[in-house]
């Protein structure tokens, strides 16, 4: 636990130093020392906050995110965003605006909180879908076209997020339910 704390702080310092260098652009001794002083203050103030456990469940149960998979995931997500942006652009420009709004409920069995946050953010980042609520394992997603989510959000996105943590995840999404009228709400 102690070693993890130190590693956490060291990576924090490294990131802040990189950020300082990018923002200042000077490499003199004077500016570097100013940066080091500010970083020391920031780390001191934030160390308790960073090591605080916000959720009741153990967020770091020894499961590491797979770094190379993360790079692949980001590129894949960018591509998905571009494709679905064009779909949404078509829907908006089309004279009759053939949208078919709907709310999708589904359950996931993702390993822990970080994975759910990544999935929620990715769903919102993809045009055509917004995460409304995440409650434990239940997701509530609003989508512009309900076909949209049937074929590509529910399965591939959640599976990709699960693959960030496990090489071969089992079934990730279950109990899907599509609501397309206010009576069913």
């Amino acid at each position: 636990m102690k070693g993890k704390k130190i590693r956490n702080n060291v990576s924090h310092i490294f990131l802040l130093m990189l950020f300082w260098l990018v923002l200042s652009g000077y490499f003199d001794l004077f500016y570097l020392s100013l940066g080091l002083i500010s970083i020391a203050i920031v780390v001191l103030v934030n160390s308790r906050l960073r090591n605080y456990n916000y959720f009741n469940e153990q967020t770091d149960s020894g499961e590491k995110i797979r770094l190379f998979r993360l790079i692949y995931f980001i590129l894949w997500l960018l591509w998905e965003i571009v494709i679905s942006s064009f779909k949404v652009a078509y829907l908006i420009i089309h004279p009759k605006m053939p949208i078919k709004a709907g709310i999708i409920k589904f359950k996931t069995n993702l390993p822990h909180m970080n994975a759910k946050v990544i999935l929620g953010n990715s769903i919102t980042l993809t045009p055509g879908t917004v995460t409304i609520e995440i409650n434990d394992n239940d997701f509530l997603v609003h989508s512009l076209t309900s076909e949209n989510i049937e074929d590509h959000i529910d399965h591939s996105l959640a599976v990709e997020v699960a693959k960030l943590y496990h090489v071969e995840p089992g079934r990730v999404v279950c109990e899907e339910q599509v609501i397309t009228s206010s009576k069913e709400l």
Binding site: S85, V88, A89, I92, M97, I99, A101, T124, L125, T126, P127, G128, T129, V130, H142, L144
Partner: peptide, 16 residues
């Protein structure tokens, strides 16, 4: 301007 309600508009304004 074109989309009908709050949620669908939030798609347009935030995503695009």
């Amino acid at each position: 301007i074109r989309l009908p309600d709050f949620f669908t508009r939030s798609h347009a304004t935030s995503k695009s």
